[in-house]
């Protein structure tokens, strides 16, 4: 008996060890293969992109600095004009920020409705939950530029197409994030309110919103940051604001680089400013919740 067990023990340790080594090796093999596939994908993807680009990567690499250098040197020569130009483009900046702010506001209201209508336990019409979720998915999937270009065709250029396009996308994106938060909300206050005969709107306003407000606000601020960038980009395709001015200044080329530089400075400053402000408030909102 003891003989056998003594005999058996090293064998099983051996087999465990060899099993373990085999497993480690297989894991390494799989890991290595995944890495290899990934590397092949990256390299071949890069080569395809390089082939289909108008200029090559290696030819262009040493030219990266040329354009910024041209802009900067011209802007430096005309540095006396810069404050005046910044003042001149300030209204365009206000327009860009307004587009972002209004679309965030409208999008957040839409997202709030979509999230409440698409969350189990909270929805007013439980049968329509999948419908509202699909609507929110669709709104999220359409890139802003698609709606903006169509609306520019119908409504003409200006801030309104950009505003509607960003608002639609924001409503879809926030609808999803909001409903993830709302799913974790405590339903007891809602039940309590229901027992007093509160309507659906009252239950949501007094029972759910106070629970989710910090997270909702935090997500909305994050969206506002993203939307400032989006509204600048949409301006570039004709939707007004700073992006539109940038395209015009760039179309002029050399000689108007001081204007381009002024717009670069404004855009950069705005994005950094709102990033910092919103990240500070978001930290406060989420940390306040933790306590």
């Amino acid at each position: 008996m003891t003989d056998i067990s003594i005999d058996q023990a090293p064998k099983s340790v051996d087999s465990i060890q060899s099993n373990y080594m085999a497993q480690v090796q297989r894991r390494r093999l799989y890991g290595g293969l995944t890495l290899l596939i990934f590397a092949v994908l990256m390299v071949s993807g890069f080569n395809i992109a390089d082939d289909r680009n108008a200029g090559g990567f290696w030819d262009g690499l040493h030219q990266i600095g040329d354009y910024p250098a041209d802009v900067l040197s011209e802007a430096w020569e005309k540095r006396a004009d810069l404050p005046g130009l910044i003042a001149q483009y300030f209204p365009a900046l206000i327009e860009t920020i307004n587009i972002a702010a209004v679309s965030t506001l409208i999008g957040a209201i839409g997202g709030l409705f979509l999230s409440l209508a698409g969350t189990r336990g909270l929805a007013k019409w439980p049968r329509l939950i999948p419908l509202f979720r699909r609507i929110s998915d669709m709104m999220r999937a359409v890139p802003e530029i698609v709606i903006a270009l169509m609306l520019i065709f119908v409504l003409g250029g200006g801030p309104v197409p950009a505003m509607i396009a960003i608002a639609i996308h924001t409503a879809g994106a926030l609808g999803k994030m909001f409903s993830e938060v709302a799913e974790n909300a405590d339903l007891k206050p809602v039940e309590g309110l229901a027992s007093t005969g509160a309507t659906w709107a009252q239950r949501m306003l007094l029972g759910v919103l106070p629970q989710v407000a910090p997270n909702y606000l935090s997500y909305t601020l994050l969206r506002f940051e993203i939307n400032i960038r989006a509204s600048a980009i949409l301006g570039f395709v004709g939707a007004g604001g700073l992006g539109y001015e940038l395209r015009n200044a760039m179309a002029w080329g050399p000689g108007r680089f001081d204007e381009a530089a002024a717009i670069f400075v404004l855009l950069f400053g705005t994005i950094v400013f709102f990033d910092q402000v919103s990240s500070r408030y978001r930290n406060r909102l989420t940390e306040g919740e933790r306590q």
């Binding site: 890069f46 680009n53 262009g60 040329d66 910024p68 960038r229 670069f264």
Partner: peptide, 16 residues
């Protein structure tokens, strides 16, 4: 947006 504008000057238009 600005990176696109700057890089398009160096590499030309395209996916890269």
């Amino acid at each position: 947006l600005i990176w696109t504008v700057v890089l398009a000057r160096a590499f030309g238009p395209g996916p890269l």
